[in-house]
């Protein structure tokens, strides 16, 4: 799986990706190729470059070297086939808007300049809210939602993008157990529809239960493959150093 065979068009193909902040490497020469219909977790210690990897794939940060291909072309071209869930902490939840409005933002990429979201867009947003079990909170000011509910709103916003490839940055952070279960159910549903979902995750305990593929990252790519094959003692030691013993128990 290190090098893809040239025939099928893969949802995500990253070659030799290097990212640096002020000449300090955050990601070094990362390769990966993800098949369609994969539910992939990116795991690694803090500062391993997990979020950076996603952001680099989405073209949000400059890369020092490397190439990202989404369904065989650059991200800029395939943008409408990609959905994104940023970290929940990345926005000010006191912003004056309600849940439905945030979800409608997911349609902005399809709308184009000067166009206002219309009834169809709002209906789609409502459907997405329904799907994440948040329909009754559609008109609720976003600061009055719990952490789990805010995360669901973000998820609904990505769903409304109607993408084939999703990037999600820590969608389980700060959510309650019930939300976590319903989110993972949703992700598995997406996968069964042939969508590809890439999730930054930090809980090794639930990894096997939730995901089928996993990329272990610590500045460099330590391993990529089915969860069972990746979670070896040696790999974990390489990713987490001395802390892995504690994490394995």
């Amino acid at each position: 799986m290190t090098k893809p065979s040239p025939s099928p068009i893969l949802p995500l193909e990253v070659t030799d990706l290097t990212v640096a902040y002020h000449e300090k490497p955050v990601l070094w020469d990362v390769d990966c190729a993800i098949d369609e219909g994969t539910l992939l977790a990116i795991v690694g210690p803090n500062g391993a470059g997990k979020s950076t990897f996603i952001k680099a794939c989405l073209g949000l940060i400059p890369t020092a070297a490397g190439r990202v291909k989404v369904f065989g072309k650059t991200y800029a071209v395939q943008r409408k086939r990609v959905g994104y869930v940023p970290q929940r902490e990345s926005v000010d939840w006191d912003f004056p808007t309600h849940a439905l409005d945030v979800v409608t933002m997911g349609r902005y990429g399809h709308l184009g300049w000067f166009m206002r979201p219309g009834k169809t867009d709002r209906d789609m947003a409502m459907d997405a809210l329904e799907k994440v079990g948040m329909a009754e909170f559609a008109r609720r000011q976003i600061s009055q939602l719990s952490g789990g509910q805010q995360q669901r709103v973000f998820l609904a916003r990505a769903l409304v993008q109607d993408a084939d490839l999703y990037f999600m940055d820590e969608p389980f952070s700060g959510v309650d157990a019930a939300t976590e279960r319903s989110i993972i159910q949703l992700l598995q549903e997406l996968r069964s529809k042939g969508k590809t979902v890439i999730v930054v995750h930090h809980d090794l305990q639930t990894l096997k239960e939730y995901f089928d593929w996993c990329m272990l990252l610590n500045v460099r790519r330590i391993a990529l493959g089915p969860v069972d094959e990746v979670l070896t003692k040696e790999n974990l030691h390489r990713a987490y150093g001395g802390r892995s013993a504690f994490l394995r128990s």
Partner: peptide, 11 residues
């Protein structure tokens, strides 16, 4: 204003 990164990801 609300979510610059997301806006950028939308192009």
């Amino acid at each position: 204003t609300f979510d610059a990164d997301y806006a950028r990801s939308l192009g």
